[in-house]
Simulated assay, not measured.
Amino acid sequence: MARKTSWEWSRTAQTRKSMLRAAREVFSEHGFADSNVSEVVARAGSSVGSLYHHFGGKTELFLALYEDHQAAHEQAASSSVASARKSGVDDPVELLIAGARAYLAGAWERRDLVRLFMDGDGPPGFELIRRTRGREWVRQNAVLLGAGADPLDRFTVAALTSVIGEAAREVATSDTEDEATEVVEAAMKLIRRLDPLRVLEEG
């Protein structure tokens, strides 16, 4: 079997990107259940056969869009934390806040997707995938904060993660960027006020 040329790989990547962009529009407008692949491929300027070749079907397309969205969140948060560390920040709470700010900036930039994945419908099994991803997010935050395994530590980190998640929902439903910024600042203030390091140390 002949290897694909760089041009063919580029075209494949562009086709995938076009389909995901079209899927984002269609799913955001209609939700998962009321969307159909024919509208996606029409907007992408492609074919139903090509969509099934690249993704396998509507469910897989939805999940690929979700994974790309989450990967963008994680990349932005990780880069922000790394940048804060490089600039000399070593307070775990401030590192958490740096990551949260990047996460919430992405929530505004991709607010249509946040609304879709948080409050819209999805394919069978999506809720489990979302919960699993949420538990992994809590685990990552626990590592960042140096939390232990006892119930108070776990609950503290879960509560902080929930604050960020709810802030993302509020950001995504804000009418203006200024309103979204106010939500972000309120969330950061709440995280500092909760003083998670003190709770973890006392626990």
Rank of each mutant, 00 (worst) to 15 (best):
V114W: 09
H30W: 04
L63V: 15
R3T: 08
S83C: 05
S80Y: 06
F27C: 04
D119H: 13
P196I: 14
R133V: 05
I97R: 06
T59W: 01
G56D: 02
S6A: 15
A159Q: 08
A84V: 05
F55I: 02
S80T: 03
A71H: 11
R139P: 02
L160M: 10
M118Y: 14
A82K: 01
D150M: 07
A44W: 00
G146S: 04
R131A: 12
H53K: 14
L116Q: 07
W9F: 06
H53L: 07
V40N: 00
E127S: 11
M1C: 04
Y103W: 12
T156F: 03
G49Q: 00
I97Q: 03
Q140T: 11
G106Y: 06
E74M: 12
A107S: 15
K86P: 01
A33E: 08
A2C: 03
L65M: 05
D112R: 12
A23T: 01
L65Y: 00
V37R: 03
A142C: 03
V26Q: 01
A142S: 14
H30Q: 04
A142Q: 08
L200P: 13
V138Y: 02
V37I: 10
V48G: 07
E170K: 13
E136D: 09
T15I: 07
L197P: 01
R3H: 10
P123H: 09
Q70C: 10
R198Q: 15
L61W: 05
A33S: 05
Q14R: 10
R24N: 06
R193V: 11
A142H: 06
R192K: 14
A77F: 03
K189V: 15
V114I: 08
P151R: 03
T181N: 15
R85Q: 10
Y52C: 02
R193C: 11
L95R: 02
G125P: 01
R11F: 00
T132F: 08
G57K: 05
S18R: 12
L194Q: 08
R193K: 14
V157Q: 06
P151V: 10
R192I: 08
Y52K: 08
D68L: 11
H69Y: 15
R16M: 01
R193D: 15
E29V: 02
V157E: 05
E8G: 02
G106L: 05
S50N: 08
A33I: 05
E182I: 09
R139V: 04
L116A: 09
A105N: 14
D175Q: 13
G106H: 09
N36P: 06
K86I: 02
F155M: 13
E127F: 04
G45E: 00
S28E: 03
T176M: 11
D175N: 12
L152W: 11
G99N: 03
H69K: 07
R154H: 11
R110S: 13
E170T: 12
A22V: 01
D112A: 12
G106T: 04
A33K: 05
A107K: 00
R115K: 09
E202F: 12
S79V: 09
M1G: 10
A71Y: 07
L51N: 04
L190D: 13
V199P: 06
T181Q: 15
V114A: 03
S10W: 00
R133T: 08
D90P: 03
D91F: 09
E185T: 14
